[in-house]
Write a protein that binds this DNA or RNA. Structure first.
Ligand SMILES: [Mn+2]
Ligand SMILES: [Mn+2]
Ligand SMILES: [Mn+2]
Ligand SMILES: [Mn+2]
Lengths: 219, 219
DNA sequence: AATATTATTTAGATTAACCTAAAAATAAAC
DNA sequence: GTTTATTTTTAGGTTAATCTAAATAATATT
């Protein structure tokens, strides 16, 4: 149906477009996919001709219904493989993205159906991101990040906004994993840092950048 | 390192070349890979320039040491994935080849190392073919097929020579799986058929073609 | 409002992987 | 040992995906 490159573009456009289905700029897309703006324009026009995206010259792109459907299938495959890699092959959560980036392009529907069954129909991937079902439906992504809590609030880590290897390794060092409870003790407006306690441990300091990349469910 | 297409060619050349490292003709290779002779020539010349094959114009190709090494890695990945698909995802042995044909091109060494561990370091794939180890060493392929037995001999099925989906499904119908014991009762020179008993069941008739595609260990 | 800067698109080229049709080499038949 | 048939290679072309450099449109600055 689609080439791996087309799938990567559709997925990137879908993700960058967000819940509001905003138009995505060529440069943002090119940067995300680590390619030139000229290449991005080229592929956007190709996808547009196939009816997979809405494109307005110089304005941006977003996915059409058929493009969104395709993107969700790729995301489903990607996240199922991530679960497999972590739960079955014992990879750390920071190691799985690059491998899943390749596995996601194997399109056998039976393969994905059997994998889903083998993994007992997981609803979330190792980074807390929801896994679309076979029809493309999935739980909504959370909206509250740690830095949005008020002083004294207690929250539970439910997913990571940034899922770069570096950030995940850093979270490992801080002993922050999915399900960890974090209590926001204090906020220092001076440098934008937060004082928190992780799993009721001692008080530590987190930067605003880190706090903004941890999705929290308020308890 | 290599593109999926290069890997497919190297694997096909290696396999067609056999134990005797015979030279493989362009037409045989093209037929195996379901492509045109012109395309095969094109790729052969490309692989030759990279030192992966020995090529003599109009005579044929076989793998060089570096090409053989690469081919064995692809075969290792292919067969490990086949084991995964059958043992873990519960595919039938006739369904796994096409999927493994894609999975084999994912080159993460850690992925294969972890998969191998997860599968408890299997030595044979679901068709009885030996799995090369990380260094490329593997058990020799068997040489005795069912039609080579003498009347009255008892043998055990250890692998299939043909691993096409059709043939494997046919074996399922006959209740012939790896490990099955087959007793050769009689041979009819008139039409080249064999009378056999499978797992000490009733006498049935097999064609010479079928008998020639079942590798046997004489008991 | 005119100018400068930045973003985006187009133009033109390259590479891998394919194809068909024609040419050349090898093998088979007479 | 010619002639014929088959196999293989070459020639020339296509498509997907990329690039750099140039042109154009949109945005920002004075
Ligand atoms: Mn990908
Ligand atoms: Mn993920
Ligand atoms: Mn393959
Ligand atoms: Mn096999």
């Amino acid at each position: 149906m689609f080439t791996p490159t087309e799938e990567n573009y559709l997925k990137a456009i879908y993700k960058l477009s967000g819940n509001e289905k905003e138009f995505v700029s060529t440069s943002k897309l090119a940067e995300t996919l680590d390619t030139s703006a000229a290449s991005a324009t080229d592929m956007i026009q190709r996808l547009s001709k196939k009816g997979l995206v809405h494109y307005h010259k110089y304005q941006g792109v977003n996915t059409s219904p058929s493009g969104e459907k395709a993107a969700l299938q790729v995301i489903r495959r990607h996240r199922l493989w991530e679960v497999f890699l972590v739960q079955k092959l014992k990879f750390n959560w920071n190691e799985v993205h690059a491998i899943a980036e390749e596995l996601e392009h194997i399109k056998s529907p039976q393969l994905i159906a059997q994998l889903d069954k083998f993994l007992a129909h997981p609803k979330y991937d190792p980074h807390g991101d929801p896994i679309p079902d076979a029809e493309g439906k999935m739980a909504p992504r959370p909206t509250t990040t740690l830095n949005m809590l008020a002083t004294g609030d207690l929250g539970k880590v439910i997913s990571t906004k940034d899922s770069s290897s570096d950030f995940l390794l850093f979270l490992d060092k801080l002993n922050i994993s999915l399900g960890a409870e974090i209590e926001l003790l204090d906020y220092f407006a001076y440098d934008g840092t937060y004082s928190v306690r992780i799993n009721h441990g001692p008080a530590i300091t987190l930067s605003g950048k880190v706090a903004g990349n941890i999705f929290i469910e308020k308890l």
